[in-house]
Design a protein around this nucleic acid. Structure first.
Length: 568
RNA sequence: CGGGGCAUGGCGCAGUUGGCUAGCGCGCAUGGUUUGGGACCAUGAGGUCAGAGGUUCAAGUCCUCUUGCCCCGACCA
């Protein structure tokens, strides 16, 4: 393609408040343009990258035996009602109504649609298993879109849905998908961690995120030093160390405490004891029912809301209690009791690792001490509801957690019977002629986010350095000194030759642009090979790899060979 | 959803305690000089200062509301 025909422009300056490197460079290089918050135009250059990414994914998905298809964008709302996902928060549906009054949801994910399609076929066990997928626009009403393409409200997703006869058969598909994903991301130059995570509003019992480690990422996860464990913070299981379990239980008492002792720091200062010796209470409210839930933990630990929701089977339902809610309980911030309020008490596993807790019944000038779990108070249940942190021990106590941040570019979910049992007739006929629900999984990759992740990792101060397989063009050909007829002729010849041998080339043929500007654009756009034709190059061409400094003169056949060689 | 910030030609920004004809850089157009790292000169086009209401002799500037965007947080009681 000739640069003079390209729509879209590189620019020198971007807004100060663009913070993500990928956002800045993709905007500056003329790959994307924002429409409104979280919704982007894919410009021709960006479109080419997007297409390359799709090609890689498609090829590997097809290799895995999955079949591409396409579902409608508007999903009948009844389907979402069938699984009760219309009521779940954490996943705000955008709905539209047509002129007949029929209601539709703009799909943010398509489990119901695929189940609906499949159930209408009335399949037999002989038709199983299969894995069907699509590339389609997804709509998510994010509270806060940010970082350019990293978190948008409208994006392309590859979503696949597998249907199996049973768990055993499913597990093979799940493993195959994980393997396929690793291959896909590796091909694009992304090293991914496979992070065990929470299924959240998608449902099912387990899932894994594919995460590219990067500081800008919003996924916080932990890897054990021995490399045997890798889990998202929302599910990371860690060992609660015994604090003082050998100590003898002393008699419970309420005693005087200076009024200035209010916070956990005050406690530690006043008693000269570590935070782990105190009780901590965190109050939540069920969004829909208004029920108050009090999470009780050891003072040095924090409550993880996702874990708590999971334990209570209330995914996306909890919100922080307000001061008003506390008032209704007859208390206020800092004065919540570990027992006795009209609320559901859930305790963390750590409550049994300490003898003679301090706290739990704070009033203005008193509190309680020598509080022992089981003897002096009891929660409705003890569960893993505490937030993991760097340095904590793995469950077996053998290794320590290292904290990492990353960009979640893909995920694989075990869905099991989550949808097929909620939706009627989502069954096939087994060998015995019985109707049996499908055992499902689903698998997603965010295309634009993957694009941003690549740009986030492969760049330098001058621009993006695209991995060859996703680069918009393989060669960025630029000509300097176009007014010289022989140079111009030579450049045209090189361009034609490259095209003829099937090389994708962006030919900067602009006449009134200085050399410096052409170089700057080539760096910014970031194609892997920069080829220069000028007076200096004579019957050769100058070749430079983006990201490297050395330049070399080659003749055309050499160049073709260099470029044809697949570099990954 | 809470807190903070911003909104001025296409883009990036300046505009003082309200004051006269709203500026600068980039980009764009035209002409010229240039041509191996965003070069230079000249000329020109382009603005209901986000929207609505208000205060005032006078509003880009002060007040109120609305909308949009950006940043931080959304859990430690």
């Amino acid at each position: 393609m000739k640069y003079s025909n390209l729509f879209g422009k590189t620019i020198k300056q971007t807004k100060k408040d663009i913070t993500a490197v990928s956002h800045k460079l993709l905007h500056q290089g003329g790959f994307i343009r924002e429409n409104v918050a979280g919704r982007y135009f894919m410009l021709p250059l960006g479109m080419r990258v997007r297409q390359k990414i799709i090609n890689v994914i498609r090829e590997e998905m097809n290799n895995s035996g999955a079949l591409e298809m396409l579902a409608p964008t508007l999903h009948p709302l009844e389907l979402w009602k069938e699984t009760n996902r219309t009521n779940e928060t954490g996943f705000e549906l955008t709905t539209v109504t047509d002129r007949r009054g029929a209601e539709f949801a703009l799909g943010g994910t398509a489990e119901e649609m695929f189940v609906d399609l499949v159930r209408n076929f009335k399949l037999s066990y002989k038709d199983l298993p299969f894995n069907i997928y699509q590339f389609s626009t997804k709509f998510r009403d994010e509270l806060r879109a940010r970082y350019g393409l990293l978190r948008t409200r409208e994006f392309t997703m590859k979503d696949a849905y597998s249907f199996d006869a049973d768990e055993e058969s499913f597990k093979k598909v799940y493993a195959l998908m994980a393997e396929t994903y690793t291959k896909i991301f590796e091909k694009m130059g992304l090293k991914t961690y496979i992070v065990a995570a929470d299924n959240g509003y998608i449902g099912g019992e387990y899932c894994h995120e594919f995460v590219v480690e990067h500081e800008i990422g919003e996924s916080r996860f932990f890897v054990s030093e021995d490399g045997n464990y890798c889990a998202h913070e929302d599910i990371a299981k860690f060992k609660r160390e015994e604090i003082n379990t050998r100590e003898k239980e002393k008699p419970f008492e309420v005693f005087d405490q200076p009024q200035w002792v209010q916070t956990m720091e005050d406690n530690q200062k006043h008693y000269k004891l570590p935070a782990s010796r105190f009780l901590k209470n965190v109050v939540y409210k069920n969004r829909t029912t208004g029920e108050i839930i009090i999470a009780v933990t050891r003072g040095d630990l924090e409550v993880n809301k996702s874990k708590l929701e999971h334990v209570l089977n209330l995914v996306g339902q909890l919100e922080d209690a307000t001061e008003e809610d506390l008032h209704k309980l007859g208390t206020k911030t800092g004065y919540v009791h570990s027992w006795g309020h009209k609320a559901k008490y859930i305790g963390d596993l750590s409550l049994t690792t300490v003898k003679n807790f301090i706290g739990g019944q704070k009033e203005d000038t008193t509190d309680s001490r020598n509080v022992n779990y089981g003897r002096d108070f009891k929660c409705e249940m003890l569960a893993d509801i505490a937030l993991a942190k760097a340095g904590y021990l793995t469950e077996n106590g053998k290794s320590k957690f290292v904290e990492k941040l990353g960009i979640e570019v893909g995920n694989v979910f075990q869905l099991g019977y989550h949808y097929t049992k909620k939706m009627h007739d989502a069954t096939f006929i087994d060998k015995n002629g019985k109707e049996v629900p499908y055992y499902m999984g689903c698998y997603g990759i965010g295309i634009e986010r993957t694009m941003a992740a690549i740009a986030e990792i492969y760049n330098d101060e001058k621009g993006i350095v695209w991995p060859e397989i996703v680069s918009p063009f393989k060669v960025h050909l630029l000509v300097i000194g176009l007014e010289d007829e022989s140079v111009k002729k030579r450049a045209e010849e090189v361009y034609k030759k490259l095209l003829e041998s099937g090389v994708e080339v962006l030919y900067d043929d602009r006449e009134d642009v200085t050399a410096g500007e052409k170089f700057a654009d080539a760096d910014l756009i970031g194609c892997p090979y920069r080829v220069v034709v000028s007076k200096k190059t004579g019957d050769k061409v100058e070749v430079k790899r983006r990201g490297e400094n050395k330049v070399a003169l080659h003749n055309l056949t050499d160049l073709e060979q260099i470029v044809q060689r697949q570099m990954i």
